[in-house]
Amino acid sequence: MKLSVTAAPHIRDGDNVRSIMFDVLIALSPAVIAATYFFGWRALILSIVSIFIAEGIELFIMKVLRKQKDFKPDFSASVTGLLLALNVNVGLPIWVLVVGLIAALTLGKHVYGGIGKNPFNPALVGRVFLLISFPSLMTTWWAPRYWNLDTLTTATPLAVVKEQGFGALNVGYLDLFLGNIGGCMGEVSALALLIGFAYLVMRRRIKLLIPISYIGTVLLISSIFWMIDVERYGTPLFHILAGGLMLGALFMATDMVTSPITPKGQMIFGVGCGVITMMIRYFGGYPEGVSFSILIMNSVVPLIDMYTKPRIFGKHVVGKG
């Protein structure tokens, strides 16, 4: 009889990289549905096309450039593809999105050695690449349900507040919560993102401390500035619901590869993201700072990991010998 001789442990948990990535895709699907509701079929088509093109690019890189003939997709490129699609406005030409995907998967992922080795969130690398390369295309926002309107485009609530003050805001909190606002197609609906996030939490697939500390920090800072000058800085609830905070905090900052390992490190990471986001929103050149804040914090993850090592059991007690 032929027996396999493998190393212990001889049983393994059923989870694998693919099932984790697949769950992230499921968790993002409410956001896709909300985007389709507010921005029409084009949103759905962009999302799906982006997933397939991303997997195609990954397949090409792995099989042709990296010569790994037996490579099988692990859906991580699908997640990158979907996240990038959700991070652009619905009017973006598909070819521009493809450029972003190529940047995301090459500059953001495979130049470092592929999955697990990349220091930066690949989708955010793609997004920032596009933001710098195509600034006007990336900051033109089609209005929700534009087919009922006279004008195609609108301004995002964050831009309105930044340029004209909180009093000029023409949308209510319910619009912000449901997603009836201008913005990236996946970021508008806080409700849809929270539903997806709840699924990930239920499946224990998320570093939970990151969104808690990130959003908590945003809440704290915006509360302070709210008391200083509400007209200029807006309200805490506004800052939590507007822009890319929900999408960033729940789905981008929590990317396992590019966030710290230990609970303490994850707290520091979330706080850092929150502080930088609010500094950019209040004082920066851009109305929104979620992408930049996460990328900046990504870069200090090795440092955070080094300073937040867990205390080894038994290492700090005396009494041996």
Partner: peptide, 15 residues
């Protein structure tokens, strides 16, 4: 079916 040996993938730092 009680798979022990399975293909190893790179660490995704899931913690």
């Amino acid at each position: 079916e009680r798979k022990g040996k399975v293909e190893t993938k790179p660490c995704i730092r899931c913690s």
